[in-house]
């Protein structure tokens, strides 16, 4: 291969890297379910009305909790499957990147779920309700926080298995927690929490939660968030 051709290839690779890097500088647009893809008038109205708040939430999670990942259509005004009426919960689904720990894996699923609930649900709830317009909107019926994590390191080319919990918090309980009237322990009692091992439901989980300040204290070593983003507790 000639030197000029090699140079061209190297240049193209460099451009590709720059483009890739630029694309990673902001959360991808598809993290939020577009308003028109919600399937009820109530949900479409909420999504349109609070579009800015959803984009801010997506950006804050992306920049301030960089070990957490949202995927396509992770954020929206979804209806929990187990409710009958068109009750709309502001919902978010997060994949938590963490080192698979044998010690953590030896805990029971209720203990792992309690740990994850304690660590993330309150912190995410606060971020979901940053905007007073969201917090004060009585047509929002509640909040769903879905957390998933790698169960254990896959062996021998096997597909990784995730554990997932979905915490459904009614609006009144969320507000009581945010205003300090409910503790994290109380919130775990009031919330409906469902669990999955891979694709298999393990049903409703009874959790014993506690206050965990990990999200507000953990820092990725040497990580510099975008200076235009304000990372608050």
């Amino acid at each position: 291969m000639s030197g000029s051709r090699l140079g061209l290839l190297a240049g193209a690779a460099g451009v590709a890297l720059i483009i890739t890097g630029a694309a990673f500088a902001a959360p991808p647009d598809d993290r939020i379910l577009p308003a028109e893809m919600h399937q009820s008038d109530k949900a479409r109205t909420l999504a349109a009305k609070h579009g800015r708040a959803l984009r801010d939430l997506s950006a804050e999670i992306y920049h301030c909790l960089p070990w957490v990942e949202t995927r396509k259509h992770s954020i929206g005004f979804y209806k929990p499957r187990h409710v009958q009426d068109d009750r709309r919960f502001l919902s978010i689904r997060l994949y938590i990147e963490q080192e698979p720990s044998p010690q953590f894996a030896r805990l029971s699923i209720e203990q792992r779920a309690s740990a994850m609930f304690s660590r993330y649900v309150g912190a995410v709830l606060k971020r979901m309700t940053r905007q007073p317009a969201v917090r004060n909107d009585d047509t929002i019926d509640g909040f769903t926080v879905i957390l998933e994590w790698l169960k254990q390191v896959p062996e021998g080319g096997q597909r990784p298995v995730h554990e997932t919990i979905a915490a459904f918090v009614d609006k009144v309980d969320g507000e009581s927690y945010l205003s300090g009237q409910l503790t994290m322990r109380d919130l775990a009692t009031k919330a409906r929490v469902l669990g999955w091992d891979g694709e298999t439901s393990v049903g409703a989980l009874k959790l014993a939660a506690w206050d965990d300040d990990f999200v507000s204290t953990f820092r990725v070593k040497n990580y510099q968030p975008d200076p235009t983003i304000s990372c608050r507790q």
Binding site: Y78, P80, R81, P160, V161, W196, G198, E199
Partner: peptide, 14 residues
């Protein structure tokens, strides 16, 4: 690799 995990549709409706 592609994980084995519950689909969004099993938990939530649009």
């Amino acid at each position: 690799g592609k994980p084995i995990t519950v689909s969004q549709e099993q938990i939530l409706e649009r």
